[in-house]
């Protein structure tokens, strides 16, 4: 009973990352994890994972050596604030960019 060949257009979205683009570009500081202080990394056992829990954007992986997705990490610093062992520090992006530049030049 299809009398209408309508091409309905509606504002219905399918899911995917990066609706706001590369939100990693929002960062002024980036979190750096010192694995020697990180509980699951040190113990090589599933434990703590508070950074993963509190991250508003879910960009910290839940694994023995947690990794941060820098494509989307907004640099809020909650992980650094809440880490019970102080394993995470917020480092200025500008200093890291300089370092990365130097590394690239060397190579």
């Amino acid at each position: 009973m299809d009398e209408c060949k309508c091409e309905i257009k509606t504002s219905n979205s399918k899911s995917g990352p990066g609706d706001a683009g590369r939100t990693g570009s929002w960062r002024v500081e980036r979190p750096v994890i010192d694995l020697s202080k990180c509980t699951p990394a040190k113990r090589q056992k599933d434990s703590c994972y508070l950074c993963w829990l509190y991250c508003p954007d879910g960009v910290i992986s839940k694994e023995l050596e947690p990794k941060i997705d820098l494509e989307y990490c907004k640099g809020c610093g909650i992980c650094a604030q809440e880490c019970p062992t102080g394993a995470i520090t917020m480092v200025e992006e500008t200093s890291l960019i300089e370092e990365e530049k130097k590394t690239n030049e060397k190579n």
Partner: peptide, 22 residues
């Protein structure tokens, strides 16, 4: 606890929430 809580995510990153949004 954070250890036994599922790692499956239901929202993609790179969204428009403010940095640090509760």
């Amino acid at each position: 606890n954070p250890v036994n809580l599922t790692a499956e995510e239901f929202i993609y990153p790179g969204n428009r929430a403010c940095s640090g949004c509760g």
